[in-house]
Design a protein around this nucleic acid. Sequence first.
DNA 1: GTGTTCGGTTCAATGAACAGACCGGAATCC
DNA 2: GGATTCCGGTCTGTTCATTGAACCGAACAC
Lengths: 172, 172
Amino acid sequence: MALGKDYQRQDCALARALEVVGERWTLLVLRDCLFGVSRFTDLRGRLDIPRAVLADRLATLVEAGLLERRPYRPGRDEYLPTEQAVALWPAIYALREWGERYYPPDAGRRRFFRHVPCDTDVDSIGRCPRCGEIPSPTELETRPGPGADRTLRDDEVSLALYEPHRMLTPLP
Amino acid sequence: MALGKDYQRQDCALARALEVVGERWTLLVLRDCLFGVSRFTDLRGRLDIPRAVLADRLATLVEAGLLERRPYRPGRDEYLPTEQAVALWPAIYALREWGERYYPPDAGRRRFFRHVPCDTDVDSIGRCPRCGEIPSPTELETRPGPGADRTLRDDEVSLALYEPHRMLTPLP
DNA sequence: GTGTTCGGTTCAATGAACAGACCGGAATCC
DNA sequence: GGATTCCGGTCTGTTCATTGAACCGAACAC
């Protein structure tokens, strides 16, 4: 979100949320983090986002408590989603579903999410039709649908996501 | 969303959705439209948004098919949410809930939503505990909670929303 | 040592957001 | 019917975020 990332004088939970995750790129970064992407270079490879902006968004998210920064090798850090970021999944999923519904590819859905314990795809509100629960992403596996365009991206992360992948597990 | 409102080369329903509703102010405008606000001046009074930006967002939303522009008097138009905008409610609600949970006022929740046919408040995933359904906003009534700050705004719309109000009915 | 990759920071240019002035048509006041 | 007000914008100059490209230091790889 551009100029003035805050919404002063808005006594509203939505405005508070958007102050944290409403900036450009932020939700896409979080989506990838929930998929299991954690390194600067991998995020860069998948989102065509300027380095400076990615660095800024990651720092903002760490400060806001959505990501935890942790070295995975001396001098190299990775960014892992906290519980607060995981709690954002229903909102991300709802936006996804809306986009999938109103802007569908000709070939069909772009992506599916399966509730692993029940071996069942979740429905349009993110509920598992079998157990009736709304699973956390930790219990979901994602896989591409017929509408996925496999020619669009050839970075490592996107290639890995053309196969089924358990969410929140390291990628690629 | 600022500069470059599109996300090229992202084969992803979330990116599609954010291209439409991810710009700054857009979700707040839609939230108010779903509450029942429809006129330029009323939106201006409640969101401290520059006129030019509001005009731009409304035009964009009309073109995208989320709002319908309709004269309510010769020369004066109002903006009414379409079904596509109503379908965005689960996403807006999920973001709201996340904000309400992680950035709560000391006094408690800012706002409640009641499923009118069941006379029951919906839960954190927007479900009515009584009937088990996820109601459309057409069946919801909103009212302020103990965390609402009644001193913050004194525009007509906000004053009206300090009383219970059926969503999608004209306001103020 | 030399080269490469990673994870950034710095920089100038672009363009969106902002506050505030302006403006035209319709209704209202007198 | 003439002046005024209100509504729904547009226009203007300034501020600030985003962008792409260049740069940079630390850690390996050989």
